[in-house]
Structure formats: C-alpha cells, structure tokens
Simulated assay, not measured.
Amino acid sequence: MAIQLDEIRAVAQRVAGSHHLEVVDVEFSGGAKFRTLRIYIEKDAEGRAKLAELAKAAEAGEGDEEAPQLPKGVPVEMLSGVTHEDCEQFARDFGTLLDVEDIIPGAEYTLEVSSPGIERKLTKPADYTRFQGSLVKLQTFTPVNQSRQFQGRLTRFEGNNLTLDLAAVKQKGKARKSAAAQDQTVEIALSNVEKASLIAEI
C-alpha cells in the first residue's frame, strides 16, 4: 500500500500549528513489520523569536534563573527550541489523528518525533534564506565545476541560486581540486541540490 507523505505532512502541520510548532521534515522508512515514521519539529517563528530574546538576555547577564539553559557556542538560529514535552504532546495528538483517519494503512509502525538537530537538513527555499551565513554541506544532481559534493559557508541565496564560500571549509576529493583551480566561491541552482544540511560550528 502506498504511503502518501504529502497527506501525512499536511496532518502533521495541522497538529504542529495547534502546539505553536512547525514541521521541518517527514521521513518514512522500512517495510513489512518494521516501518518507522519520523517527524522533525521545531518551535514556530514566534517561539524561535522568544528563544533569541532569551539568548540575548543571557549574554547580557539578565537571564532568569528559571529560563531554559541554551547550549554555549551554538548560534541561536540553529536551535529548534523543542523540548521533550513538546515532542511527547505532538506525538500523542498526531498519532491519535493518524489512527482515527487511518492515514497509514497496513501493519503497525513506529512513530518517532524529535528536533531536527543542529546539523539539520535544508529542505525548502526558506531554509536557505534563514541560514545564510551558516556552514553547509550539499550534494548536487549534476556536477558543478566537476564535483557533486560541496562544503562551505552559505553567503547568499537569491533568485533560487545559492553561493557557497568554499574557503570556509577544508575541501576533500574532487571538490578540493576544483576549489584550487577555480574561484573560492561556487554558485549552485537550488533545483540542482539533491540534498543539503547544516554543519555544526561549536
């Protein structure tokens, strides 16, 4: 039986919105008896703004002792702000809705809900806008400057093209030879990005 990820994502977003959360990514893997549905969530824009305010207050020494402790050295924009309680509440409500609406037919499956982590995937154009200035690694569908693997700092995202500063990360393999022979920046069309994720800077 085919699993409709778009339908699952729509239901997940509906539930997430009621909890002031956003869905970052949806994955469904496995087969037969060992199927796993993974949902990655984060606080919504308002929740992330509050997190940024907490971080700024903590830096200024004005933090509330009861405020959640933020990891040192991690840019606040990379934090999801999601707690264990957020994941539990979302999983309970989302799981119930999936069962009631019978969205995942067939045998049992395992539902896993978590934050996307600091090395999160970049899955939509808004991610590239939001994480400009961050280190990223990506793979393209077709080679650019004779390479499909890149690591660098995302310096710009404009007109569905992204620019990476390759000098920000030590390159490997073909990418290193390409970077040595070419300019230290590369422009890649978003439509040519097969997969991309952040690189943690701690």
Rank of each mutant, 00 (worst) to 15 (best):
M1T: 10
I3A: 05
Q4V: 02
Q4S: 10
D6T: 12
A10F: 06
R14F: 13
R14N: 14
V15P: 01
G17P: 04
H20E: 14
V24S: 11
D25G: 00
E27A: 15
F28S: 02
F28C: 02
G31C: 01
K33V: 09
Y40M: 14
D44V: 03
A45F: 02
E46G: 10
E46F: 09
R48Y: 04
E53N: 11
K56G: 05
E59L: 09
E59A: 10
G61D: 01
G63Y: 02
G63E: 15
E65M: 13
E66D: 15
E66T: 13
E66V: 09
E66N: 11
P68M: 07
P68Q: 04
P68L: 04
L70I: 05
V74Q: 08
P75Y: 05
P75S: 07
M78P: 00
M78Y: 07
L79N: 00
T83P: 02
H84Y: 08
H84E: 10
D86P: 05
E88T: 12
E88P: 02
A91G: 03
R92W: 08
D93P: 00
F94H: 04
G95I: 06
T96L: 10
T96P: 00
L97G: 00
A107L: 11
E108Q: 12
T110N: 11
V113F: 01
P116H: 03
P116L: 00
L122F: 01
A126E: 15
D127C: 03
R130N: 01
F131I: 01
G133H: 00
S134E: 15
L135P: 08
L135Y: 09
K137W: 00
F141M: 10
S147F: 05
S147D: 08
L154V: 04
F157T: 06
N160R: 14
N160W: 03
N161M: 12
A168H: 07
A168P: 06
K172N: 10
G173W: 02
K174H: 11
S178M: 11
S178V: 04
A179M: 12
A180H: 05
A180S: 10
Q182H: 12
Q182W: 09
E187P: 02
L190Q: 06
S191T: 13
S191Y: 01
V193A: 09
V193Q: 07
E194W: 08
K195C: 09
A196D: 08
L198K: 06
